[in-house]
Design a protein around this nucleic acid. Structure first.
Length: 611
DNA sequence: GTAGGGTTAG
């Protein structure tokens, strides 16, 4: 067949154009085969490959149809050409399917079996497939081929091999490979891959040091490098470093990329500098959905939920379509502000736009309904989820525990174990607080023990506090005291608060006095401990001490957390604090409030059965 | 014909 092809004359230009057009519009493999047969008769192998490349690409992309893929692969048997193998391996490794990546690796094997040698294009393609399918062992074999064939001296081969080791988490291999390669053979991509490997593995400091080394080696970073460097700064949350890198970017005119600006916004928010982030954000010449998401999620992380929702509203006002990341931020804000209506609106939007309540967004929806008091709706969403992970189960368990539905929370926990999802530390906070509220001492103790024995999780202060609460509520005061005394971590305000709460229920005045002293030491500014203690005195009819404590509170001018309420009108949140007159309609609001008060007074002071 | 990029949870 090869001799037949090589002896044929090439097709003229107009015919080439015609064939190209026919190939593009052909939808069936049958038709493709006919056209291909014609090309085999009339064209050179190079022409066939060039012409077939795009078609192969679309065949691979629609490889849900096996016939297409089989046909594309069968071409390699007839043509036995490195370029064609490269084309198909490239197409297969470009797709996100693991099956296609594995198919790419098999084709590489087939190529070697046919006696063809890989070139500088083959190895980057097949290494990309190895990285996508996390095929480290095959990658190591290809590493050996690259040494044997001297292809490792090619910078593309070298970089993709480094990337393979990086995504497989073998940082030592990345480090070794990079430092054994002569400096002249390393380019910006090599450095970027190295820096990214350090960030991914959790060494942001080493990543930054490598970036400085790169600058020392007189390489100028581009947008891609900077995005990774900025993400390392974010992880370190080091403001001084952040400012230094930002200045470097400005001085060198490197912020010409929306990706870099987004990373800057995210970095400043991670460092807790909202106004810096806003400044970068406001001055961005181009903003995309990720820019808005960075802003929204950054504000949510800082607990600035109202501001996050303001940003969401502005994003809507300019007509930018939100995506699932946006909604996770919005749902999170709703959960923390108790905005059920807005949360419901997001859910309706999701239904309307075929966004499935799964993954991140499904979990955020469960959490929102649970925190906004709609525990039944949270449960319905949870049950409707196709795949539930540790986050879904935890959100559900914690939600049920908050609502006092201990039994149901424990049932969900058993289901979680049954389906083989490993719980996390947070799951146990939910489980233990459920036990505590339901007075299930034995069960609580068992779960607490299981944490370390079965699940290899180290109990944290929050778990000890739950146990103190569990013992305290059940009246097992000495067990609660023992735990506070001998716990391996320093008891926090929750632990002492739980003990104080138990003292109030069970009238333990002396012990309460010890607990309150500790509590005041930890939180001297807050009035909660004093109020609780004064209640302990009152419950024991020790009025004098109770009065004395209230006097001390007055003298120390303790900060009272102002009562705060919020209402949601047409999706906008209005917050009110005691004595707060910052609302734009404050005058009208207070006027109406006075009218309502007077009206109520009139009702209550007027004689019964009158009007 | 080739390699490296950002935002998401309990």
């Amino acid at each position: 067949m090869v001799s037949l092809i090589s002896s044929a004359h090439d097709i003229n230009n107009s015919r080439q154009f015609f064939l190209h057009h026919r190939l593009e519009s052909s939808n069936s493999v049958g038709e493709l085969k006919q056209i291909h047969a014609f090309i085999i008769k009339k064209g050179s192998p190079q022409f066939q490959i060039r012409l077939l490349h795009d078609k192969i690409k679309s065949l691979v992309e629609s490889s849900s149809c096996n016939e297409n893929l089989t046909y594309a692969c069968s071409l390699t048997k007839h043509l036995q050409n490195t370029h064609l193998f490269n084309s198909i391996i490239q197409c297969l490794s470009a797709s996100n399917s693991k099956t296609n990546s594995r198919e790419a690796i098999s084709l590489y094997r087939e190529m070697l079996i046919q006696g063809l040698l890989p070139n500088t294009y083959t190895l980057p393609y097949v290494l990309k497939a190895c990285a996508k399918s996390r095929s480290l062992t095959v990658g190591q074999q290809i590493h050996a081929h690259s040494l044997k064939t001297a292809l490792l001296s090619n910078v593309y081969v070298f970089n993709t091999l480094m990337r393979l080791y990086a995504v497989c988490g073998t940082i030592e291999a990345v480090h070794k490979l990079f430092h054994f390669q002569p400096g002249s053979r390393r380019d910006l991509v090599s450095w970027t891959t190295l820096i990214q490997a350090y960030v991914k593995i959790g060494y942001p400091k080493v990543a930054i040091l490598s970036f400085f080394d790169m600058c020392q080696a007189s390489l100028r970073p581009d947008g891609m490098t900077l995005v990774i460097v900025l993400s390392a700064c974010s992880k370190l949350a080091d403001l001084n470093l952040a400012i230094k890198i930002h200045r470097y970017i400005l001085d060198n005119n490197l912020n010409t990329d929306v990706f870099v600006d987004n990373a800057l916004v995210g970095m400043y928010l991670k460092c807790g500098r909202t106004h810096f982030a806003c400044k970068v954000f406001d001055e961005m010449p181009i903003k995309n959905v990720v820019s808005w998401n960075s802003m929204i999620t950054g504000l949510v992380r800082q607990g600035k939920f109202k501001e996050a929702l303001d940003k969401f509203r502005r994003m809507q006002a300019i007509g930018l379509k939100p995506d699932d990341v946006t909604f996770v931020g919005v749902l999170n804000s709703c959960a923390n502000l108790g905005l059920l209506e807005l949360g419901k609106w997001v859910h309706a939007y999701m239904d309307k736009n075929d966004i499935r309540a799964d993954g991140f967004i499904g979990n955020a929806l469960v959490d929102m309904y649970a925190k906004c008091g709609s525990i039944d709706q949270a449960f319905r969403v949870f049950q409707g989820m196709k795949c539930r992970d540790v986050y879904s189960y935890t959100a559900m368990i914690v939600g049920l525990a908050i609502h006092g539905e201990a039994q149901k929370a424990l049932e969900v926990f058993s289901e979680m174990s049954r389906v083989g999802i490993e719980p996390s530390e947070v799951t146990f906070v939910g489980v233990l607080s459920a036990c505590s509220h339901a007075g299930l001492v034995e069960e609580g103790c068992k779960h607490f023990d299981d944490m370390s024995k079965v699940y290899n999780l180290k109990p944290q202060t929050a778990h000890y506090s739950c146990m103190v609460d569990l013992f305290g509520r059940a009246g097992l005061i000495s067990e609660a005291v023992e735990l506070v005394k001998y716990m391996p971590l320093v008891p926090d305000a929750f632990a002492w608060g739980a003990l104080l709460g138990a003292c109030k229920i069970h009238g333990k005045v002396e012990l309460a006095e010890i607990a309150v002293k500790k509590l005041v030491k930890i939180e001297p500014e807050r009035e909660g401990a004093y109020i609780l203690m004064s209640n302990v005195y009152s419950s024991a009819y020790r009025w004098k001490e109770a009065m004395k404590l209230r006097k001390i509170m007055k003298e120390r001018k303790l900060k009272k957390t102002p009562g705060c309420s919020s209402v949601e009108v047409d999706g906008e949140v209005h917050e009110f604090r005691k004595g707060d007159k910052s609302h734009p309609k404050s005058i009208e609001i207070y006027k109406l409030l006075e009218e309502i008060t007077n009206h109520s007074k009139n009702i209550f002071t007027s004689a019964p059965f009158e009007g």
